[in-house]
């Protein structure tokens, strides 16, 4: 009855890959609204490091995972800045799609019966043979949600 979403989703994913992989290199490198507000009152050098004064950001600490191979939206070991930023963006888009899409797919309502009718036995048996019994699937979803 309804059109499938996949062609649109694939097209949208391509746009996202283009934005994160190429256009991201033309983004402004100035501190964002939060950062700049937190630096108000301090003096900073060209690298936006605090050199003096008093401001909300002066006790900021390093990130727990500052040594991550993708930290600060670059790929460690890739010297070319354009390539490093673009590649990190592409990885990020694919990773976000895989993680988000995967979790949403696991958590979705099975079947396309009318909303809120889990009592219909036909739906349960129809999906049964495909992915095993529905109980383990529910457990998996609960764990996936809890893990976050």
């Amino acid at each position: 009855m309804s059109k499938r979403p996949w062609p649109f989703v694939l097209g949208g994913l391509l746009v996202a890959l283009l934005l994160a992989g190429v256009v991201s290199n033309y983004a402004s490198s100035h501190p964002d609204g939060l950062d700049s507000s937190l630096l108000k009152g301090c003096t900073v050098n060209a690298e936006d490091e605090i050199t003096g004064g008093s401001c909300p950001a002066q006790r900021a600490k390093d990130h727990e995972l500052a040594d991550s191979p993708l930290a600060d939206y670059g790929v460690r070991g890739v010297g070319n800045g354009f390539l490093s930023t673009g590649l990190s963006g592409v990885i990020g888009v694919l990773l976000t799609f895989a993680l988000g899409g995967g979790l949403f797919w696991l958590a979705r309502r099975r079947g396309t019966a009318t909303a809120g009718t889990p009592t219909a036995p036909a739906g349960g048996t129809a999906t049964g043979p495909a992915d095993g019994s529905s109980e383990p699937a529910g457990d998996r979803d609960a764990r996936a949600a809890g893990a976050r």
């Binding site: 309804s2 499938r4 979403p5 996949w6 649109f8 989703v9 949208g12 994913l13 746009v15 996202a16 890959l17 934005l19 994160a20 256009v23 991201s24 983004a27 402004s28 490198s29 100035h30 964002d32 939206y73 963006g89 990020g92 888009v93 694919l94 976000t96 799609f97 895989a98 993680l99 988000g100 899409g101 995967g102 949403f104 797919w105 958590a107 979705r108 309502r109 396309t112």
Partner: peptide, 24 residues
């Protein structure tokens, strides 16, 4: 979340990640 919204939600997350990189 049904078979149509789940992939759309994955796309929305990926798209937001991409556009968040584009500081204007």
């Amino acid at each position: 979340l049904d078979d149509r919204l789940a992939p759309m939600a994955g796309l929305v997350a990926a798209f937001i990640f991409a556009v968040q990189m584009l500081n204007f």
